[in-house]
Amino acid sequence: MTVHGTPGTSPGCGSGSPCEIPTGNLIPLLHEIRHALERWLDSGEEHAIDLRGIPMAPGEEDQLLATLGEGELHADLSLTGKSVVIETRFPAVWLVTHYNTDERIVGRYIEVCEMPAILKSQTEDARAGLEYLGKLLNENNLQ
């Protein structure tokens, strides 16, 4: 695997010129993902990494994303602003990106699990939906 030389990425520092010295966080991060994946397979333990909490030089995150690639599943969520959940080319390794209404990224996570919680149906919402459905039927005398 050639992480530093991943084609198609042009890492830059500051005002766009190439970054001579990466933070060095990329490789450890990929190892963390590998260990998390092993643990999930062995014991089902889920793991999430907050990419905003890790210092990265400009371009390094692009390199990470290019390395993870895109797998079979891509979900766009319409929340307060868009959220995008993709399964990377490593199954069970997910990339969750939250955008605000201006389509700017406000949060980005790598999750190692069967399915990120945000994709799952929420019981509170379901309860409200049920209530609304009942109300709808009632109002229209569809019983």
Binding site: S83, Q122, D125
Partner: peptide, 8 residues
Amino acid sequence: ISRRSFLK
């Protein structure tokens, strides 16, 4: 506001 938005 949906629960998912809140989670986000």
